[in-house]
Amino acid sequence: MTEAEKRLPPKREIVIIIAVLALLGLLAAAVGFSGGKAETARVLVDGQTVKLLSLSADCEYLYTGSEGAENLIVVKNGGVSVVSANCRDGLCVNQGAKSRAGQSIVCLPHKLIVQLEGDSSEVDAYAK
């Protein structure tokens, strides 16, 4: 182990580090605040749509998958959240309620995504 390998970042590197952090931060903020109010929530499992929920009325949808996988998805006041789930980490429940188009709730153990969309035309097509 040489001294050079233990050193603190030199000035040149601090500039790179701050630039990278700022760029990623801006990108994250841009994505976080983009998108208008969502109108529908699409529930995907393994990339396949299993359910479309309209956010205009409160409702509940219990997803049941193979090997007893369960996620209770609740629409309330124009937002959607996973209220309870029997997955290993419970991260989908931690993600709370989402209401902007483009946002999503992910449950990796169940390969489930609740994706919020702004356009409602597909719900009508699905309902037919």
């Binding site: 580090i17 990278v20 952090l21 990623l24 931060g25 990108l27 994250a28 841009a30 994505v31 976080g32 995907l44 393994d46 990339g47 483009g102 946002q103 999503s104 992910v106 990796l108 390969k111 995504i113 994706q115």
Partner: peptide, 27 residues
Amino acid sequence: VAFFTIGGAAIGYYAPVLLLSGAVCGL
């Protein structure tokens, strides 16, 4: 891996936040 297994749009939404957290945790 997430992109190829569970799909695109939702992953794109998380990408910047996850890359940022990777940078901070790396430091």
